[in-house]
Computed example of a mutant assay.
Amino acid sequence: MTIPQPASKEARPAAGPGRPKDLAKGAAILDAAQRMFLRHGFEGVSMDQIAAAAGVSKLTVYSHFGDKDALFTEAARVWCEQQMPGSLFERAPHLPVRERLMDIARSYFAMICAPEAVAGHRLLCSPQMVEKQLARLSWEAGPQRVQEEFARFLERRIAAGHLEIDDVQRAAGQFFALVKGDLHSRLVFDCDTGEAACPDRAGSHLEAAVDMFLRAYGARQPAA
């Protein structure tokens, strides 16, 4: 996603304490911000431009999100939540653990390989984003939430006897690292976009990642 330029030091109105926000306007602002940040970068977009694209006043943008840094972080959070909603990790004890892991792997891989996500990843790796701590804030608002939801999913499957994991947080991180593999790095570095986009190759990659995870953490069958 394209990112807004750093907020200026000019005085800006604080969000009103008791006034309800217009949800439709907030959604329009986030949609405009996502599109413009991805297209023009953080420094290439002003709050005035985002307001114009959303069809609202700049005052409305500040009232909803406070400043550009907060708008960027919220846009990243909402986009990630839309791609991987909490419902993906809801209880479904009747479904085999491998099937659930494959569903999560497919959704995550599709999310990180989307053109918007690749552009956003490149942007967040820039020195400016790191210095402004926007990379860290975006991680906490998006991917970290996904990893925490997944860790809770793993804990439920451990309790059900489907998995054996000593360090759940570590295993959660390992799962998503396996799902990324080297295909995501190739996309980010523009080395090979074909393999990640090919359903057969991507599918084989994800099946291998899930099978490796289960070989490490699947519940062992008792010895005969």
Rank of each mutant, 00 (worst) to 15 (best):
A53K: 14
H121G: 07
P143G: 09
K68D: 12
E207D: 06
S107D: 00
D211E: 13
F109I: 11
M212G: 07
A216P: 00
Q34S: 08
M129L: 15
F109S: 15
Q83A: 15
I112E: 06
F175Q: 13
T73Y: 05
I158C: 08
Q128E: 14
A135Q: 14
G203N: 01
Y217K: 03
R98D: 03
K9A: 14
G161P: 06
F213S: 06
L124G: 11
G86Q: 10
A24I: 12
D103T: 10
Q169C: 01
L30D: 01
D182T: 13
Q147R: 12
E148F: 01
E140D: 15
E195A: 09
G120I: 02
G86M: 02
A28E: 07
W139N: 07
E155P: 00
I3F: 15
P143C: 08
T60I: 08
A15H: 06
A105V: 09
R157A: 00
Q5Y: 11
Q49I: 03
F189Y: 12
A172P: 00
D22A: 05
I3Q: 04
A117P: 01
P6I: 04
R145V: 13
D190C: 03
A219M: 12
R100N: 07
Q83K: 15
C198N: 06
A171V: 06
S46V: 07
R100E: 09
K180G: 10
A110F: 03
A105I: 08
E149K: 00
G16L: 10
A15M: 08
R201F: 06
L187K: 04
E195L: 08
P127V: 15
P17Q: 09
F176G: 09
A216Q: 05
K25I: 09
E116Q: 10
A11E: 14
P85V: 03
M47G: 13
F189M: 11
F150H: 12
A177E: 10
V188R: 06
A119V: 08
A32V: 05
I3V: 14
H94Y: 02
A196P: 01
Q128L: 12
R35V: 02
Q133P: 01
A177V: 03
G18Q: 05
A177Y: 01
F109A: 15
D166F: 09
I104T: 09
P6R: 06
A160V: 02
G173V: 05
V45P: 11
V61Y: 02
W79L: 11
G18I: 00
V78N: 01
P143A: 11
F153V: 03
E43G: 13
R170Q: 13
Q147A: 11
M36P: 01
D69R: 12
A24P: 08
F213I: 07
G55N: 04
F72T: 14
P96V: 06
G194V: 05
A53Q: 15
A160Q: 14
L187S: 05
T193G: 07
A114P: 07
R170G: 01
S185N: 12
